[in-house]
Simulated scan of single mutants.
Amino acid sequence: MLEALIIFTAQLLYVPMLTLRTIMMVKSEKTKAAGLGVMEGVIYVVAVGLVLSDLSNFYNMAAYALGFGAGLYIGAYVEEKLAIGYVTIEANIPNSNPELTTHLREVGFSVSTSTVQGINHERYMLFCTARRDREKEFYRIIEQHEESAFVASYEPRSFKGGYITKGMRRRREKYKKKEESA
């Protein structure tokens, strides 16, 4: 029974590492992916070795499978909380909304705007690239100002230059100071 517990625990460690390693590979973080891969390999060998050492022990097999499933859930949860990388968000709104655009910029979002042609009339488009951990915040702000907005987001593979690297950090710090003094 102790072996089954060890196998289950190993899977709880192994599978979230597998998830994070895969994400690091996709995001071109080779060094981090390699480090996670080494730890993942050690845990995998131990867990599989215990299972294969006694194929008549169904508790070990069940612990492996249950640990794998629970590990997937934990890995997805951890990845969601870490929100590694960036997201590009497009908000299609009925009319120009300077108050919304100003507010988004004040809280540190880079926003580009454009007039676009809809089916029957002109609409207004907001474009933003931000860290993934701020995506929900962007959606909340849009919802507060424009309930009928169509908002879509996607992860860019890479980008170069622009406002994102330095400007977002400075504006967010400025906005926090402004809030604290109010």
Rank of each mutant, 00 (worst) to 15 (best):
V38R: 00
Y77F: 10
S158P: 07
S158D: 12
E80L: 01
V107S: 01
D54K: 01
V78W: 00
I93M: 01
E90K: 15
Y139A: 07
V87N: 10
M24K: 05
A34R: 07
E173V: 08
E79V: 11
S110M: 14
M39D: 05
L66A: 14
R123G: 11
M39W: 11
N92E: 13
A91H: 13
R170Y: 07
D133R: 15
L18H: 05
A63M: 04
F68N: 11
R105D: 13
I142Q: 10
N60C: 08
Y175A: 09
E80F: 00
D133C: 09
N57S: 14
E80C: 01
R105L: 15
Y124P: 13
I43F: 10
N60S: 13
Y64V: 05
Y139I: 13
A83N: 13
E180N: 07
K160V: 15
I84E: 06
P94Q: 11
F150T: 06
E180R: 10
R172H: 09
I93F: 01
T19V: 14
F159C: 02
K27C: 03
G108A: 02
L126F: 15
A152T: 15
A130P: 11
T19H: 01
L2Y: 14
K177N: 08
G161T: 07
R134E: 06
H103G: 00
M61D: 07
M39V: 13
F127P: 08
T101M: 02
T102D: 13
M1Y: 10
H103W: 01
P16K: 03
E143P: 05
G167P: 08
L2V: 15
